[in-house]
């Protein structure tokens, strides 16, 4: 259907409304994931669709429209954050090692409680993470883009993507390990 929509250089409003209906929810969730604020997310949503309309003719592979919109959404959300919130972000960040450790421990009652705490802490730390790291996490873990796809979409090097992922994971790991609640429950 998407191929049919864009025979011309720019879609009509009616055609673009179809795109809006199809991707409204995804784009809003993307920008909310970055901003964690409904007002900022709404601003970013509107800007994302305006930009998408203007640049739709540049999209080469229209089957990839979802991923394309997501990268516009994350970039726009970061811009909105910078413009209206100021740089109040705290670096925080990781995950996979924690996850692996938990799997090794098994699931007795204590660890279920601990797992819930870890989950809460990890998700909480996402809000404090640098917006650029949330962007990479969103594209990698939510939308399953490859490292190369992320690098291409954001016009950055693959190693920069990997570095951001590594740093994000480690910061989150540090935060969870430092949390006093977790130390008490874990008895370490």
């Amino acid at each position: 259907m998407l191929k049919k929509i864009f025979k011309k250089s720019e879609p009509t409003h009616e055609e673009f409304r179809l795109v809006y209906d199809m991707f409204y929810s995804r784009v809003y969730r993307d920008v909310y994931f970055i901003t964690k604020d409904s007002h900022l997310a709404q601003d970013a949503l509107q800007e994302t669709f305006v930009k998408a309309y203007k640049h739709m003719h540049r999209l080469e592979d229209r089957e990839r429209m979802g991923a394309w919109l997501s990268t516009i959404a994350t970039r726009t959300a970061i811009d909105v954050l910078r413009k209206r919130k100021g740089a109040r972000e705290v670096l925080t960040e990781d995950i996979m090692i924690q996850e692996r450790n938990m799997k090794e421990k098994g699931l007795d009652t204590l660890h279920i409680v601990e797992a819930n705490l870890v989950k809460e802490e990890l998700l909480e730390s996402l809000k404090e993470i640098k917006a650029e790291y949330r962007e990479i996490i969103l594209l990698r873990y939510i939308h399953d883009l490859s490292i190369k796809e992320i690098a291409d979409s954001l016009s950055i090097n693959e190693s920069t993507v990997k570095t951001r992922l590594h740093r994000a994971r480690n910061k989150m790991k540090e935060k969870v390990q430092r949390d006093p609640k977790r130390q008490w429950i874990g008895g370490e």
């Binding site: 809003y28 969730r29 409904s38 007002h39 998700l123 939510i142």
Partner: peptide, 9 residues
Amino acid sequence: DYQKVEEPP
């Protein structure tokens, strides 16, 4: 977490 959003104004 991605699914948990506060509705836009």
